[in-house]
Simulated assay, not measured.
Amino acid sequence: MNTTAATGSFARPDSALPQSIPDYLDRLRAALAGADKALIQDALYDAEEYLRSEMAENPGQSEAEVIAAVAGSYGAPDEVAEIYRDTEVKVQTALRPPAPRPRQSLLGRFFGVAAEPRTYAALFYMLFSLATGIFYFTWVNVGLSVSLGMLILIIGVPLLILFLGSVRILSLVEGRLVEVMLGERMPRRPLYQNRERPILERIKDMFADPRTWSTLIYMLLMLPLGIVYFTVAVTGLSVSLSLIFFPLLRLVGLGTVQFDGYDVFMAWEPWSWPVAMLIGVVLLFATLHIARFVGKFHGQIAKHLLVRLG
């Protein structure tokens, strides 16, 4: 969100304003201390992009002069930080699904998970994670093996740079999936790259950025995590739904569960079928609780590996 401060901010002496863009960004980061790290990354990107564009439109002015000129329209660091905090609260309030009515009893909390929209989004993410895990794992392994294997030739260097650039793009895509499905705030802007800097310096920054390598770790982890998430979700849903519906089908003469040529349900006494259905219902809701836990757990993994925390 490109957020600008309201026009007409109170005037302040030039000495109180940052004298350079790095100084402005440092003060903005300090003013946002304690805010979500993804929000801080977005705010820093927007501020640097705006200030750099103003510098490009006013080549005859120094950074201090440009900052002083835009202080009334864009805002000083503390003003911009306050606007971002307020806007974030409004956006999250608007996007957050309605909170279910608090339940005091143990049974209410156990079965109330079905009323939370995030539960089904997290369950879908568990099912979808196997596909994304296979894709990420394959992309990283093929990209690294090809680019590193070609380093003996001059083409290997640009291949490695392109591969790492693609990984940073994929991290933003994964971040949007995590935010939409799991509800964890993720960056909506990449790390800013000053295009006026020499390209070799920008490439050096990409290699020196810990987030580049933590993103690779995340993508490699997604395959084993995706296998676990998918297996737990499919097993939980299939077993619980089988226990719920197969006794009903047997009542009308349909549905069999064969094990070594032996019909399992046929051996069950009719009085045991309601017990099986009850166990199935409990397992189904337990699976939904597991999905909610996985959503929060994986959201924290994504936050720590895909977002620059410094």
Rank of each mutant, 00 (worst) to 15 (best):
G183F: 05
F230K: 00
T235E: 03
R101S: 10
Y50N: 09
R118V: 05
F259P: 01
A6C: 00
A291H: 06
V113S: 10
D26E: 15
E174W: 00
T138A: 14
A131G: 11
P13S: 15
A35P: 02
P190Y: 05
P210D: 08
A5Q: 13
R202P: 00
S62W: 03
E63M: 09
D260G: 05
G253Q: 05
F285S: 02
Q41F: 01
A99L: 09
T215C: 00
S272L: 12
F285Y: 07
T256S: 14
D86P: 01
N194Y: 02
I290N: 04
P190R: 01
V264A: 14
M206I: 04
V80Y: 09
L127R: 02
Q104G: 10
A115N: 08
P97A: 08
M150S: 13
L278K: 00
P187Q: 06
H298V: 02
Y120I: 00
P198D: 05
A6Q: 11
L51C: 01
V70H: 12
S73E: 07
A276F: 06
N58Y: 01
I152D: 13
L130S: 03
V264G: 02
F128V: 15
T4N: 14
L25E: 10
L25R: 12
P224F: 02
Q258I: 02
E179P: 11
S214L: 12
F259S: 09
S240I: 02
S147K: 07
L106M: 14
D26L: 13
I279L: 13
A68L: 04
I155M: 01
T132N: 02
L127K: 04
L151V: 03
V146L: 10
V167G: 14
L309I: 10
L107T: 09
V157T: 12
Q193P: 03
W139R: 09
A115I: 01
L95G: 00
L241F: 13
L200F: 15
V91L: 13
V307Q: 01
R189Y: 01
G133Y: 08
A33H: 15
